[in-house]
Amino acid sequence: MSMLSSLLGNAVLSGAVLALAGQGELLAERVGVLNLGVEGLLALGGVTAIATVAAGHDPLLGLLAAVGVGAAVGCLFAAATVLARASQVLCGIALTTGGLGLAATLGRPYAGQPAAATFQPIDIPLLDRLPVLGPALFHQSAPVYVAFLVLPLALQLLLFHTRHGLVLRAIGENPAACDAAGIPVVALRFAYVALGAAIAAAAGADLTLAFVPSWSDGVTAGRGWIAVALVIFAGYRPWRIAVGAFLFGLVNALGYLAQARDWGVAPAFLSMLPYLATILFMVLPALSARSRPATTAPAALGLPYYRDQR
């Protein structure tokens, strides 16, 4: 494998975690709920997947278990933020700290050991024979294809080409208008917050069964927070999240490459790169002229919905 090919391959592999987590966060934010618990969901999903494959030796089973746990935790989060209308910021931080702590405790027996079963690369016929790009992009595991192709395509169609998607976007913009139009605002918010959490937990399974692949305390390394930033950077668009995740993956992969080839850059600086990139990506668009209205946050993001308010 050429250097470029391995760089791109690593970029896609590490970007997939962010792409998945970002798409999950996108669903919650599009219906107006800010979920800051992605980091905790990643950890819970990751440890669930590791524990499941240790018993069952099937990566798909591990992924499904992570999705199930993510959905259950998402329902709890939605019950607090959508039904009880608790502060979304506080609940999100609680989910992050609680999720990280719970995952660290549950994951102790598996820490440091390689995953008992991992996702194996699948070759896409013909495309995998392309020079450079073939081995980099089309010799990847199933979650990577889902993260970069299936999910962005599905969400793009859902949000911008269906009646249901119109309703979802409107709920994030103006829930009172939706309520007046007879749309079940609370039920839909609940469902999509839970679904988003399930996808974020699946990103955790991708992290421990395909990317790393093992469990250790702190393996999420702030990726959940980067995913939250990525959604804003991408202007709440599924495709742009995929592209942004690839860019972040590329920064990450550059760090690995520099370390492997010994380019003489301090390793601490290299591991800092993704976080520096996050700050840069957040600051640059804000500095450049004005942000276009199409890329601004849903107007009702973070606000609990009360029917009685005028």
């Binding site: 080409h161 009646r163 119109l166 409107a170 103006n174 009172a176 939706c178 749309i183 601004t296 107007a299």
Partner: peptide, 24 residues
């Protein structure tokens, strides 16, 4: 009771049972 960030067409079709399933 309109959604300011969305288009006229989207607002007219919001929450309407006759909105086609495929709503690009």
């Amino acid at each position: 009771r309109l959604v300011p960030a969305q288009t006229v067409a989207e607002n007219v079709h919001l929450g309407w049972s006759e909105t086609p399933w495929r709503a690009s």
